[in-house]
Amino acid sequence: MAQQQDNALSNIRAYVNEARELQHGAMGFDASNIEARLEDTVKELQARVREQQDALEKLRSGSNANIADSAYPSNDPRQKLQQLLAIKAAYTSLKPTPTYLPSPGSVLPALLAARSLQQTVLGTKQAILSTQSQLHDAERALHREESQLHDATLLTRAMESRISRLRAQHTERSQKSPAQLARDLIASKRAQKDAYDTKMQELGTAMNDFINDYLAAMLAAEELGGPVVGDMLDVQDSVLAAGFTKKGKAKASTKPPSDKSRQKRIDQIWGRSATAGIEEDEDDEQPPTEAEAADAEMRKLIENLFATLVGPGGGKAYFLLERESAAARFLVRAKVAQFHGKDAKKLRLIDFGRELDD
């Protein structure tokens, strides 16, 4: 077994050496006299061209036939027969003629091979570019089709799941009496109402915390001539007490204003009705701050807007504002409410269950 393997390896090595020698022998190319060989090849080709030209001139001079007319078959049957016989005689005379081949030292075969290789390489490069472009387009189309297939699969699964649930509900309902169905429907509506009430309480608590912790102070700052809600996020009570300049900047006051002057300013802006409830709830008879007045106004405005929304007019009824306040402007900017198209003192909440007015 080992001897057979050694023989096989020796045969492989011998074949490789022989193939390498044949390759080197076939590709051997003497470039020392390349210019002389090129000149000889050119001269040989020129001589061949002159020979062909001389033969053509000799043929033209020895024949009275019109070459232009002889290039096309004649309408005369006899003349056409003569043309065919001439063509047959030409082929018969050319058949034993040996094919012209360049001399052994000519570089014409190498030049022809180089030109053929160059054309092949250029054609291959163009084919590669075209194939790459087609491949890119095919990949994009494939991705698009895969995305559409994925969407269609998801829709199919959702529809099948929906159909299965409807069939199960239909089967379940068909086995129940009308009284049982009515009880189930009432229980479902009650559970839905309880879920809505719980969610409304959570949202109401979150809204109250937002108004009390953040929004009230910013609304008060806008009412006092300061920046619009959102431009100054952290508004301190001392800033509200000092007030703002005509340019909307906070005043730098070292002496805080008296409670009497602050209460007078609050009454002028928000009125006694906006702060009456606050004063009643306070145990220490401290006057309300600007933020508390803005907080009370915002809550009262939201309460009135909700009452108008669920009132007789429904979503088309407007609440008549006593004045255009920062709270009303904030609700409009937040796209929670909208002014009347012709009267800026009328405001209503946007009913998100209906289309918006133009």
Rank of each mutant, 00 (worst) to 15 (best):
S10Q: 10
L9H: 04
V16K: 03
E35Y: 08
R20A: 14
L38I: 13
E35M: 02
F29C: 03
R13V: 04
L38Y: 13
F29P: 02
R13K: 10
E35H: 10
I12E: 11
Y15R: 15
F29M: 06
A8P: 00
G25Q: 14
D30Q: 00
V16W: 07
A36S: 08
H24W: 13
S10E: 03
R13A: 03
I34G: 02
L9W: 12
R37G: 01
F29E: 05
N11M: 11
E18C: 10
V42S: 03
Q23C: 06
I34H: 01
H24G: 09
R20Q: 13
F29R: 13
V42Q: 01
A19K: 11
R13M: 02
A36T: 08
Y15I: 06
I34K: 01
D30H: 00
Y15G: 14
Y15H: 15
L38V: 14
S32K: 08
E35A: 03
D40T: 11
L22D: 06
A8Q: 12
A31C: 04
A14T: 11
V42L: 05
I34A: 04
I34Q: 04
A19Y: 06
R20V: 12
M27R: 15
D40W: 06
D30N: 02
H24D: 13
N11C: 07
E39W: 12
A8K: 11
S32D: 08
I34S: 03
H24F: 15
G28P: 01
D40C: 03
R13Q: 07
V16M: 09
E21Y: 08
A14G: 05
V42E: 01
E21V: 14
A14S: 09
A8T: 12
R37I: 02
Q23G: 03
T41D: 05
N11Y: 10
V16H: 02
S10C: 03
A8D: 10
E39H: 14
Q23L: 15
G28D: 08
G28Q: 12
E21H: 05
E18V: 04
A19R: 06
R37F: 01
R13F: 07
D30I: 00
A31V: 08
N11F: 09
D40V: 05
A19F: 09
L22V: 06
I12S: 04
E18T: 12
R20N: 07
S10H: 12
L38N: 06
E35G: 00
E18M: 13
L22P: 01
N17E: 10
N17F: 09
Q23R: 11
E21C: 02
M27G: 03
A26I: 04
L9F: 11
V16C: 05
E39T: 15
D40H: 15
V42G: 02
I34C: 02
E18W: 05
E18H: 11
D30C: 00
G28Y: 15
D30A: 00
N11G: 10
L9A: 07
E39L: 14
A26N: 06
